[in-house]
Design a protein around this nucleic acid. Sequence first.
DNA 1: TGCTTTATTGGTCGCCCACTCAATAGCATT
DNA 2: AATGCTATTGAGTGGGCGACCAATAAAGCA
Lengths: 207, 207
Amino acid sequence: MTSRAPGKRVRKAPAERRNEIVATAARIGLTEGLECVTLRRVADELGVQPGLVGHYFPAADELVAEAFTHATMAELDGLLPPEPDGPLRTFRRFFGLTSSADFDDVSKLWLNARHLSRYRPVLRDHVVKQELLWCRRLEELITAGTAAGVFACADPWGAATRILVAIDGASAYINTSADQRRTPTADMPRTVAESELGLRRGMFLTD
Amino acid sequence: MTSRAPGKRVRKAPAERRNEIVATAARIGLTEGLECVTLRRVADELGVQPGLVGHYFPAADELVAEAFTHATMAELDGLLPPEPDGPLRTFRRFFGLTSSADFDDVSKLWLNARHLSRYRPVLRDHVVKQELLWCRRLEELITAGTAAGVFACADPWGAATRILVAIDGASAYINTSADQRRTPTADMPRTVAESELGLRRGMFLTD
DNA sequence: TGCTTTATTGGTCGCCCACTCAATAGCATT
DNA sequence: AATGCTATTGAGTGGGCGACCAATAAAGCA
């Protein structure tokens, strides 16, 4: 936590302070879980009073929701950069990243958010938006690849959806029996994708 | 909640009372979520004092974990009865049940438990056990079907694992965008299974 | 019937949470 | 250098939670 002499105040422009709060909340949510995104916890991290965070987010639900969106938005841009350098290369990169251990926190975050959405309507709206956004980005990539003649896919949206099912399914055990399941499931997202896009097995292999 | 005149006591055999508590906790966990399985909530439901539930479960985590196991154990027995009447028929029944709306609460429970396992080691142990049990039961069915010449499968454990990935992946959106995704993902678990077991597409269709 | 055992009560404690609000102090403007 | 605006403090409210424990009453046994 950023500590500061008690009583000392640092006054910032509202927009800057708000961004700071959301970024901090996103980091907490990603590394420790969205349940840890509380007014107090975020305030501690920033070295301010809880009341200040409450001032920017009169309803704590909104902060949690924005934290989630902030984190997943950044992650998506890392996975599927807006302007890709070739569908094949982008897909290889995508599977390389999603199957790496660095992706574990992201898997946990999605699991976290999808469950918490059961109780928190505001978060739910954000999660639905992100789910559809991730799917759409993947769809665009597939459509581009198909137009370029690299892939053969009659239903890009369906293919994107099913590839994500494989990824989300394989990462569902991240907090539990992931270790015991890695071997039979590690290749599944990649092979589902290759099958959906009419490619030979191994075409998306990085090595 | 079962109401009773305040002060009135009903004294039961410890084993009976304990079972009652676990069964109630399981019902709450399945229908409302494991976060709602609290000493107070279960006590209310049974018309007893919170202290009594605390007496049987000195650590609340243990109650939550047993509630989960109780619920999923019962569900598994409903999905894959111990002595099946033919692998093909059993699989059809299995996919009929898992793709029905009655399975929604079970999907939510798994999602719930898998996330909560991040923070609760006792629950985590129970979830891992159930995950492996479900997988093993499916594996046994596949092995039986392969021995009978109905299926062609070189790796029953791997096949079972991947079928469950498809099911868990498709049900990951149960609290969020399930509606928008039903069409492209509804058939996925079934077709994955048919492919894994060397069957023609549609062999597991109920109708 | 009276006695012992123990299942159950009924309250307390401390912790963490979101939310509220009057008072305060940093900063830009003049 | 004084002023006004407002970002920020600091303290308080009420609620839910697990954990704890002495007192109590139900049930089985002598």
